[in-house]
């Protein structure tokens, strides 16, 4: 397989996924892992695509749909492939008053412990007068939970509520 990473971003409207994937299907492409989510009224797509075509051929396949839907898109040839899942063994939940640097501080502390972030989702909720930041992180680390907790502890003094828990994945 010769995967390309296709990124599409634009104002959200119904039918984006259907129209984009239809164009790829008609062009003989295979889809791999994807992430699609609405962020701040925009719709964002990151998608592994392979059709055996050149980057140019793939781009000319997507361009008409992207134009119609007013999406910006980008293609990058990528290394790697399917079946490379890594199962997270830790979950970190964060919430606190929204303030500059909250993500950098939390992820910086985790990185020092060799924590590999596999998935991160964050949101700003509440109202604009009193915004609250909420974040969940799933990741993998060899480090013991006590070490992660110790690394995150200083953040409590800044009124950032951080909670680490081990994930025991059930196989049954």
């Amino acid at each position: 397989m010769n995967w390309q990473m296709l990124t599409l971003v634009g104002e959200d409207q119904p039918g984006i996924v259907a129209r984009v994937t239809d164009a790829l299907y008609r062009g003989g492409c295979t889809l791999g892992e994807t992430s699609m989510i609405r962020l701040g009224g925009n719709f964002t797509i990151m998608m592994m695509v392979d059709g055996g075509q050149s980057e140019q051929a793939l781009a000319s396949m997507i361009a008409p749909v992207a134009d119609q839907l007013q999406l910006k898109f980008h293609l990058d040839p990528m290394h790697g492939g399917l079946h490379r899942h890594r199962v997270p063994n830790y979950q970190v939940r964060v919430n606190g008053a929204d303030r500059a640097g909250i993500v950098a501080k939390v992820t910086g502390a985790l990185a020092e412990c060799g924590f590999n972030i596999l998935e991160l989702a964050s949101d700003v909720v509440g109202d604009s007068a009193k915004p609250v930041y909420i974040m969940t992180i799933q990741g993998y680390a060899e480090a013991e939970i006590e070490r992660l907790e110790a690394a995150l502890k200083p953040l409590a003094a800044e009124e950032i509520d951080v909670h680490v828990s081990a994930i025991e994945t059930l196989i049954g």
């Binding site: 899942h85 199962v87 994930i167 025991e168 994945t169 059930l170 196989i171 049954g172």
Partner: peptide
């Protein structure tokens, strides 16, 4: 909420 995998669904959790 918890994470699961299955002998009948390989390579996915």
């Amino acid at each position: 909420l918890g994470r699961e995998g299955c002998l009948s669904v390989p390579d996915y959790t």
